Amino acid sequence: KYLVLALYDYQEKSPREVTMKKGDILTLLNSTNKDWWKVEVNGRQGFVPAAYVKYL
């Protein structure tokens, strides 16, 4: 498993997404889509914009 760092705040806009705050450390679950990565944060799984996170 990889960890990624939230570069920006992101507010979920659909039930498939998750909210994150700048500085959050997220567990990367799937990065096959170049635009949306599946992550786990605070016990929830969902998608965030790939451009908003970077590998640690």
Rank of each mutant, 00 (worst) to 15 (best):
S14C: 09
Y52F: 13
N33Y: 08
M20Q: 01
G43H: 07
S31P: 08
T27A: 10
V18A: 05
K54D: 09
N33F: 07
T19E: 04
G46Q: 01
W37Q: 02
Q45K: 11
N33A: 09
A50I: 04
Y52E: 02
Y2E: 12
Y10G: 01
G46Y: 03
L29S: 03
T19Y: 04
N33M: 09
T32S: 15
V39Q: 00
A50L: 02
K1I: 14
M20E: 00
P49L: 04
W36F: 07
E40R: 08
A50H: 04
F47G: 01
D35V: 15
T27Y: 13
G46R: 02
D35F: 15
L26Q: 00
T27D: 05
K22A: 13
A6C: 10
L7D: 02
E12D: 05
N42V: 05
A51M: 12
K13S: 11
T27W: 12
P15H: 11
K21H: 11
K13D: 06
K34L: 10
Q45S: 12
S31F: 11
K54Q: 14
V39L: 03
P15Q: 10
W37P: 03
S14L: 09
A6G: 03
G43Y: 05
L7P: 00
D24R: 02
L56W: 13
T32F: 10
I25V: 13
K21D: 04
A51C: 12
D9L: 02
E17L: 06
E17N: 05
K54I: 15
K1M: 14
T19Q: 05
M20A: 02
V48E: 00
K22F: 05
Y8W: 11
L7A: 06
T32V: 11
I25K: 05
E17D: 06
Q11L: 13
P49W: 04
K13R: 14
L3T: 09
E17C: 07
D24W: 10
D9E: 05
Q45A: 13
Q45I: 15
S14G: 13
L26C: 11
P49M: 04
E17R: 04
V39C: 05
A6E: 01
V4I: 09
W36P: 00
K22P: 04
W36L: 04
R44E: 06
D9F: 03
M20I: 15
L28Q: 01
N42T: 06
V48L: 03
E40Q: 09
G46C: 02
L56V: 13
Y8S: 10
W36C: 07
V4Q: 01
T32E: 14
A51Q: 13
Y8N: 10
Y10E: 01
A50M: 05
Y52C: 09
S31K: 12
L29V: 12
L56A: 08
T19G: 09
K34Q: 11
V18E: 01
Y52N: 05
E40H: 06
V4D: 00
L56H: 09
T19A: 07
D35N: 13
M20L: 09
L29H: 06
S14N: 13
V53W: 01
K22G: 06
V39G: 00
L29R: 04
Y55G: 08
D24Q: 14
G43I: 02
Y10T: 01
L28E: 00
A6M: 02
T19R: 05
L56M: 12
F47R: 03
Y8F: 14
K34G: 10
M20C: 06
V48I: 10
G43S: 07
N42M: 09
V39T: 01
P15I: 09
Y2S: 13
Y2M: 12
E12G: 15
Y55D: 09
T27C: 11
R44D: 04
T27K: 12
L26V: 08
V18F: 12
V41S: 12
A51Y: 10
K13M: 13
D24K: 03
N30R: 07
E40G: 06
G23P: 00
G46N: 01
T32P: 04
K13G: 08
L7S: 04
N42E: 11
K54Y: 10
N30V: 09
